[in-house]
Design a protein around this nucleic acid. Sequence first.
DNA 1: ATGACTGATGGAATCAGA
Length: 259
Amino acid sequence: MRVATFNVNGIGARIGALLQWLEETQPDVACLQELKAPQEKFPEAAIREAGYCPIWLGQKSWNGVAILARGVEPQEVTRGLPGDPSDEQSRYLEAAVNGILIACLYLPNGNPAPGPKFDYKLAWFERFHKRAQELMDSGAPVILCGDYNVIPTERDAYKPERWVEDALFRPESRAAYQKLLDAGWLDALRATHPDEVIYTFYDYMRDAYGRNAGLRIDHLLLSPELAPQLKAAGTDHAVRGREKPSDHVPTWVELDWPA
DNA sequence: ATGACTGATGGAATCAGA
């Protein structure tokens, strides 16, 4: 079973590239972030024609997440990150697919830091810690995947010294990510590629992709129950080099699990 | 420190992204 995550940076602008990628790689589950579309503008028909059943949480202009399952309806578990009813940003969805609990997240960017946006990021992270622990305690096989907006370590940035003051790389952000790993979640890409330079984001500006000036900020974290089933993980790097690409690269895990 | 790119909104210029 293959589970992928892809920050599409606008489902409207990216529908062609998304359908091509789905057709080529046939993930069993695809988690999408940054739909940048209101609920009613999600291209449900086109995605169903491609063989995928979607659930989604939209929002005008910004954010927005979706979970697509190939040939089966995702069973929605949670809509929106629990813990703050006043939070109106569409950044979190959970669904069960083939007996695996899939959490799709788009963690706040947090810049500029310090400031209210960084405070929101850290508060969001705390709520996420709480929810992640509940899921782990349930004993179910779980994948937490999406755009974490965290550069975990120095090897995950092309020039780490340029990011030390940035919300993606500040000590608070890294510590919050590390806390997940300490709790027992497995960073699937790093686990399967301990020393490799792997990036999942390239800025549109100054030919970042051509210079391989990237960041690794999209992550798939496996619960201890699921970790032994990890067979492979990687990125669909070439997708970033096509016409009208997202600035993020699709990222995936392959699990020894019946699809 | 700034700018360059891109998408959405709204129908120009601005915000947000990372």
